[in-house]
């Protein structure tokens, strides 16, 4: 496969995944805002939507304070924000357009019609009863695209690069989400949450579709330690860090099993596979996550060097 094609596929998958994650996070934040909570917490939750995507500064520069409607617009339909849903879907579609030959007709058709529909939507979709529908729509379009990809794409390199992009993005998202939420909910490891925390932890789980799974796995009350364990270390939860690294490792193994990217992915995977949540907490969750994110970013760079960047130009006399 052309390196350029691989690059487009990798980013296409990352952007589709990012759109879904952003929609999920905003969805639970909106629902949280309907619960009785301190204004400070509401503000922190909306702030978390921005900080998980690293957009606090550009947002504040534009809008000043944290107003829910402004954050919603900024993160959903603001074409000038490169991480808004609109921009992310546009980027996904542009990457797909550049490599149409590598996609199945159904994949392209689905993504293109998502883009056309989203482009036509106005702010009225971010209000009242249309808002939950809007998030559901984004999620279902992302899920549909994944389903179509799964059902129609040949399991060749194209598939591996899409898998790779999707899971690198997802791992990154889960790690950031846990980091930001624990910072809000559990400023120090000794803190014990109040009654309202049930909803807060519940919301975090719902943001990654893990609420019911938590019940299935633990059959017990929500505790911060277990929530973290589930989201970071449980290999059976599709959006956990561990599950993501399983998929990343498998994809790279299918591409170049003896390369440097394979070594780094295996190393990071082992790190998660043999981790214990109590040790992570006693050493400091934030530090641990920082380290994982840094290694993930190194791996992303290595993937680029090994597969996606064109070889250097030969010399011409």
């Amino acid at each position: 496969m052309l390196s350029r094609t691989a690059d487009h596929l990798y980013w296409l998958a990352r952007y589709v995944e990012r759109a879904e994650n952003t929609a999920r996070l905003m969805d639970v934040t909106t629902r949280m805002a309907m619960l009785p909570q301190t204004p400070a917490l509401t503000e922190q939750n909306w702030g978390a939507v921005l900080s998980t995507t690293g957009l606090s500064l550009p947002y504040l520069k534009r809008h000043g304070g944290l107003h829910p409607a402004a954050v919603l617009h900024f993160m959903a339909l603001d074409g000038d924000n490169p991480s808004s849903l609109l921009s992310v879907v546009r980027s996904a579609r542009e990457n797909a357009h550049a490599v149409r030959g590598a996609l199945t007709a159904e994949m392209w058709e689905s993504l293109n019609s998502t883009w056309l529909d989203l482009k036509a939507m106005g702010d009225e979709h971010l209000e009242g009863d249309l808002l939950p529908r809007f998030f559901d729509w984004v999620k279902s379009r992302a899920l549909l695209f994944r389903g179509i990809t799964e059902a129609t794409l040949l399991r060749d390199e194209a598939w591996q690069f899409i898998e790779l992009g999707r899971h690198v993005e997802r791992a990154d998202n889960t790690a950031r989400l846990v980091d930001v939420k624990y910072h809000i909910l559990l400023p120090s490891a000794d803190e014990v949450g109040g009654a309202g925390d049930y909803y807060q932890w519940g919301a975090l789980l719902k943001a990654v579709s893990a609420f019911e799974n938590y019940r299935k796995v633990y059959r017990d009350a929500l505790t911060p330690l277990r929530v973290a364990e589930l989201l970071l270390l449980n290999a059976d939860l599709p959006r956990s860090l561990h599950a993501c690294l399983n998929a990343v490792q498998a994809a790279i193994h299918g591409l170049a099993p003896n390369g440097e990217a394979a070594r780094q992915a295996g190393d990071l995977h082992a790190h998660l596979h043999f981790a214990r949540i109590d040790l992570i907490f006693s050493d400091g969750l934030h530090e641990w996550l920082d380290d994982v994110l840094a290694r993930l970013s190194t791996l992303h760079g290595q993937i680029g060097r090994e597969f996606l960047l064109p070889a250097p130009q030969p010399e011409y006399a």
């Binding site: 496969m1 052309l2 350029r4 149409r100 030959g101 996606l308 064109p310 130009q313 030969p314």
Partner: peptide
């Protein structure tokens, strides 16, 4: 394969495309 100019290069009067392999 659908290629652009930057995906190809010439060496010893032969044309190659840059691939992941």
């Amino acid at each position: 394969e659908l290629v652009e100019g930057r995906d190809l290069f010439v060496q010893d009067d032969q044309v190659f495309m840059r691939t992941t392999q």
